[in-house]
Design a protein around this nucleic acid. Structure first.
Lengths: 221, 221
DNA sequence: AAAATAACGGAGTGGAGCGCTCCGTTAAAC
DNA sequence: GTTTAACGGAGCGCTCCACTCCGTTATTTT
């Protein structure tokens, strides 16, 4: 949201009339696309996006030549928003509070549910770059918490990613209670993530997850 | 799995030839359906189930007049398996270990991913009954842990359900690392669920979730 | 005010996918 | 050899979706 507005105002040197309508539609389209695809999944019909935006289908296709293009744009915006959340987290004085904010914000934003596009959309260089930037910032958030000794030592950055990914998966039919439920569950895992004296007695099972998973997810089918 | 085999052997008084093949197909069909629908979602094509079972589509439709019927049957079996997990949990001496086993087993079984059928399938009396039985047993598992003081006091049975439901949501494209990742994450929330001295300092946010959510999920759209 | 331009909406098109049926085939039972 | 029972899968009809085409509407230009 913040990002969308920021970007557009920066490159809108005062338009009027039809051009103003076009500029407005750009924003409404992007916002609608984010909402539709994150709640209904990436195979939601394009028509739903246009409808949600209060815009004709043609107006959508005038901007994005194809559904894939729109999805690619959305993932880049999502990565940038993750980056923004990480920056905000680093601005929080307390390392633990910062990490909590990061996780909560990413989960609330919830575009991890775009993951279903993994196989269906080509991975552009722009997406890769945005992803790298975002990963780097997240790494800083986690590393700082580790240094401060507030995050359990056997939890890695990728564990944090997995938490966010898992909680970004939304129910197919959203209910009014979902947000509350999600909050409680996230609080639960954050509590589990906190460094404690007895951590060594209950170590995380299995082996630390690797980043290769994501290659497998995006590149192969 | 266990249940499937149990049920069938009990009502198979020695058949031979074609009848034996038919009986075998019954099992393979059910197993295949479970696998396909829990991994690919409830809108996976029926043909995929038949193919997975190594059986013609007609053989499937000879047993279940409709896809909906098959899904209804599957949810009943799932509920029974949840019940079985609860019974096993109660058989474990230690209340905390019992609860952990229950959660882990339900998550590993993972038919919570059948939830997408919520809107699309009529809720039969058989399903309701199986659900009630399952809920009751789960309640016992949680209550015992509460009585023993090993489960944080502000976590309810429905919180536990929500955990299971959330972790039953699987990635669209399963990777080889998923099982390991899930294990770690579940360990994390179980750690958060454990009763601790400082629980009062970090209470679960929001209000305790209610069962009404499920009505909303299954009855309304 | 008329012509040109630019953005708009949405009906329509082509094609893919899916639930389910129909029928020719195969193998056991008699 | 005939009947019976279970089988497999091609194909039908339908829905749904990405995308296009074109008539309309609003703004800008002359």
């Amino acid at each position: 949201m913040t990002i969308l507005v920021t970007m557009s105002t920066s490159e809108r040197p005062r338009r009027r009339g039809r051009q103003a309508e076009a500029a407005r539609n750009d924003l409404r389209l992007l916002a609608a696309a984010r909402e539709v695809f994150t709640t209904q999944g990436a195979d939601a019909p394009v028509s739903a996006v246009a409808e949600r935006a209060g815009v004709g289908i043609a107006s959508l296709y005038r901007r994005y030549g194809t559904k894939e293009e729109l999805l690619q744009r959305l993932t880049v915006l999502a990565a940038e928003q993750y980056s923004e959340a990480a920056r905000a987290a680093l601005a929080v004085e307390d390392p633990w509070e910062g990490l909590c904010h990061y996780v909560r914000e990413c989960v609330a934003f919830g575009p991890g549910s775009l993951a279903p596009i993994a196989g269906t959309v080509r991975f552009t260089e722009e997406m890769a770059e945005a992803g790298r930037r975002s990963d780097e910032l997240a790494e800083q958030v986690v590393a700082r918490a580790h240094r401060a000794g507030v995050l359990r030592a056997d939890a890695t950055t990728i564990d944090v990613f997995l938490v966010i990914e898992q909680f970004s998966r939304r129910p197919p039919v959203p209910t009014s209670e979902d947000a509350n439920a999600r909050e409680r569950l996230v609080a639960l895992v954050l509590d589990g993530l906190r460094a404690r004296a007895d951590n060594a007695d209950f170590p995380l099972p299995g082996h630390a997850p690797t980043a290769e998973r994501y290659d497998e997810l995006w590149n192969a089918g």
